[in-house]
Computed example of a mutant assay.
Amino acid sequence: MFSSEGPTLRELAVQALSSVERGYDLLAPKFDHTPYRTPDRVLDAVARGLEPLGPFAAGLDLCCGTGAGVEVLARVCQRDVTGVDFSAGMLEVARRRTLPPGPEVSWVRADARALPFGPAFDLVVSFGAFGHFLPRELPGLFGQVRSVLRPDGCFAFPVAAPPRPGSPGYWTLLGFDAAMRVRNALWRPPFVMYYRTFRLGAVGRELSRAGFRTDLHALPEFGRRPDGSPRARLVVARRLP
Rank of each mutant, 00 (worst) to 15 (best):
P163E: 11
W187T: 14
F127N: 04
P29Q: 04
A210H: 07
D85A: 08
P190A: 13
W171V: 02
T172L: 15
A28S: 10
E104L: 08
D61Q: 06
T34H: 03
A129Y: 01
F191I: 01
G67V: 07
D32I: 03
Q78M: 12
L134S: 07
V108Q: 07
G49F: 11
F127K: 02
F198M: 08
Q78K: 15
A218L: 12
G69H: 09
V46Q: 11
F121L: 05
P139H: 12
F86C: 03
R196C: 06
R209F: 01
A112Y: 01
F56S: 09
R97T: 03
E92V: 01
V108A: 06
T38D: 09
S106F: 00
G140E: 09
L141H: 09
A110I: 07
V192N: 02
R238E: 12
G169A: 01
G49P: 13
T8A: 10
F157I: 07
R233L: 15
H132N: 06
G49K: 11
L240G: 13
V81A: 13
W187F: 15
R224T: 15
L62R: 07
G143A: 06
P139F: 11
F56K: 12
E104Q: 15
P39F: 04
F142T: 05
H217C: 09
R164Y: 00
L73K: 07
G228R: 08
M1E: 13
A45I: 14
T66I: 08
Q144T: 02
V203W: 03
P230Q: 08
V203F: 08
A88C: 02
L50Y: 09
L60S: 11
F155G: 12
C64D: 14
G67N: 10
A88F: 00
E71V: 01
R136P: 00
L123W: 02
R225N: 06
Y195F: 10
S19L: 01
E206V: 13
R150L: 11
F133I: 04
R231Q: 10
T38W: 12
V236Q: 10
D40N: 10
R79G: 00
Q144P: 02
G89H: 08
R196N: 06
F198G: 06
L12E: 05
E137I: 07
H217D: 06
P190F: 01
V76C: 06
L207Y: 10
S4T: 11
L240Q: 14
E5N: 10
A129V: 07
